[in-house]
Simulated assay, not measured.
Amino acid sequence: MQDLVTVFGGSGFVGAQVVRALAKQGWRVRVAVRQPHLAYKMRLLGDVGQIEVVQANIRNEASIRRAVEGAHAVVNAVGVLYETGRQKFQSIHTMGARNVAAVSRAAGLGTLVQISAIGVDAESGSKYARTKAMGEEAVREAFPGAVLIRPSVIFGPDDHFFNKFAEMAVISPALPLIGGGHGKLQPVFVGDVAKAVARAVTDPACAGQTYELGGPRAYTFRELMELLMTEIGRKRFLVPLPFAIAALIGKACEILAITPWTPPLTEDQVELLKSDNVVSGSQPGLAELGVEATAVEAIVPAYLYRFRKGGQYADEVERLTAIA
């Protein structure tokens, strides 16, 4: 086996796939998470003894030092889509990222990969985009050779995009087209993001680079909702929702953040949708990392089937209905 890589946030949607990709390449992986008792399944992603799970909180430098001890490289995959409790955008995306970079540099690590996002902007009206941009700046200052990975909307079996709107389509007669549904997104497969990160860990030529990751094509928000409804076999009204009204709804939904339920929409997410989320073309991307982009249509049928009428037996239910 190769040297050790510490992955902060390694049990999350993206982090788990990064751990899997690194393990396949033969790396030993240390998964650093706030609640290790909830991440016990991570050990199943590699060979016996290849993956260990440790407690760490990127808000706490002492725990970061323990987590990176003896490591060759570090990946920071920690991020939040909405604020709750102590998990604030500023503390995670900016201060936490700075802590990981500073401790990693002080420990003499050779490689740091920071997962950021397309659309980061220090002047953005979105706290998510603003704090991500501040985090990139802090990482660059503390660890100049860090690799920055900026993915567009990430899709995959446990994503927070297609699954969220599919759940809405099951119970609601309509789906909202925020801002009219004209904004563009370039969804990128989580497996491709993981491969890209693993390549950035392995290849010294990636040091100091910024990569923008997007799928094979860009879609309007409306096109993605139409694709979603076709896949789950449900007809729903697509209702244009002005940004101002969507922001009010998002603000009201944020009260759900204090409960176990994930808010379906937040004011900050509405702000993000005011700008296209596509690769700029001015930065290297998946191709430069040796990864072929996977199309949305090739993946979503494998996990959205459960939202069809009849779930995995949808085709059989449709056949029996036609016979009756």
Rank of each mutant, 00 (worst) to 15 (best):
F89A: 05
Q55Y: 07
L45Y: 14
S282E: 15
G214Q: 00
A73H: 06
V317I: 09
A295D: 14
L45T: 05
V153I: 15
P36N: 03
A194P: 10
R319I: 00
W261C: 00
R59C: 10
R222H: 05
K164A: 12
Y40T: 15
V291A: 04
P216D: 03
V18R: 03
A194T: 12
E167C: 01
G214L: 09
N277R: 01
E123Q: 15
Y128W: 02
V193R: 07
D3C: 01
V193D: 09
Y219Q: 02
M168V: 15
G9V: 04
F243T: 04
V80A: 00
N76F: 08
P242R: 01
K41P: 00
E223M: 00
A166P: 05
Q50P: 12
E226V: 15
F89L: 08
V317D: 00
F189G: 07
K88W: 05
M225C: 02
N60W: 05
G85S: 13
A97G: 09
V296S: 09
L81K: 00
N99E: 11
V100F: 12
I255M: 11
S172F: 13
N76Q: 06
A146R: 03
V188L: 13
G135K: 06
A252F: 14
R222M: 03
A23D: 07
V170Q: 12
V139A: 08
I115V: 15
K195M: 12
I258H: 06
G285T: 12
A107T: 11
H72T: 01
G233M: 02
A146M: 10
Y211H: 04
S104F: 13
A196N: 06
R34C: 11
F162L: 14
A257Y: 03
A39E: 08
V78C: 12
R130T: 08
L227F: 06
R59W: 00
P240T: 07
E61M: 13
L289Y: 11
A295E: 14
G12T: 07
A324G: 15
M42H: 01
S104Q: 10
S280G: 14
G119E: 08
G208C: 09
A133D: 12
P151V: 04
G15F: 07
T266F: 10
R98A: 15
E136S: 02
